[in-house]
């Protein structure tokens, strides 16, 4: 899923400063799963911002709403009837959600309340780890299910580097060395010989070769 974290409240307050009627808009999908922008977090942020405004004796209306999915038009249109009541939307969606809402309502400023982080896995309660870069050309088979692009600090395709010690990465001793994980997994499957080959340079055009990517699926279209 897509992970995110809330921006510092000071930064949010500065961005919403000029507006008088604000819709705080949550998203019940990925950012709810990572406890950053779901209904609960949206209620908290709304409440905190209203109290902050009251303490400064500012006359503002701050209301909350959470969409099932902020990045899908079918859900965003649910705001059609009420959007005119607000002069800004404070979105707790990921970067895609913020932009989808902005695309739908070109006249309304849409302000991000979150910093979108990465494609991650929920490792444990309250712990999310980055493990996919969305490179457009999955290499996980070759590397035994551990992505060196997302999980090796130096993105080595032919690792490990000389900083791998006791299975830890030199950048941060609390981090696993992705290459130790790759070697461990491949040896479990008797596939270590796969690493005797030199992995060729990555074809980055699949990720960024022709600008922003899009997926077109005729069978899914009307």
């Amino acid at each position: 899923m897509i992970t995110a974290e809330q921006k510092p409240i000071d930064e949010i307050r500065e961005m919403i400063g000029p507006f008088k009627r604000i819709l705080v808009l949550g998203c019940a999908s990925c950012v709810a799963e990572c406890a950053a922008g779901g209904e609960k977090e949206t209620a908290m942020l709304g409440s905190a911002l209203r109290m902050a405004a009251k303490m400064e004796k500012k006359e503002v209306v701050i209301e909350e709403k959470t969409l099932d999915r902020q990045c899908v038009n079918e859900f965003i249109v649910l705001l059609d009837d009420t959007i005119d009541q607000y002069d800004a939307v404070l979105s707790l969606g990921c970067g895609a959600g913020v932009q989808a809402v902005a695309d739908m309502f070109p006249e309304t400023p849409v302000i991000p309340a979150l910093n979108t982080e990465f494609l991650g896995e929920t490792k444990a309660q309250g712990l999310w780890m980055e493990n996919c870069l969305g490179c457009g050309d999955c290499m996980l088979y070759y590397f035994g299910g551990v992505c060196p692009l997302a999980r090796c600090s130096k993105q080595l395709f032919n690792g490990p580097c000389g900083g791998s010690v006791d299975g830890r990465c030199e950048i941060n001793p609390e981090m696993d060395c992705a290459w130790q994980l790759i070697i461990d997994r491949l040896s479990r499957f008797n596939a270590l010989d796969r690493l005797e080959d030199i992995y060729p340079p990555k074809d980055w055009s699949r990720k960024q070769g022709s600008g922003p990517r899009k997926i077109v699926r005729e069978d899914q279209q009307r």
Binding site: K40, S47, M51
Partner: peptide, 11 residues
């Protein structure tokens, strides 16, 4: 108990 309960009470 969630933070939102405490916040709503204060608000």
């Amino acid at each position: 108990l969630e933070p939102v309960h405490l916040l709503k009470a204060l608000e």
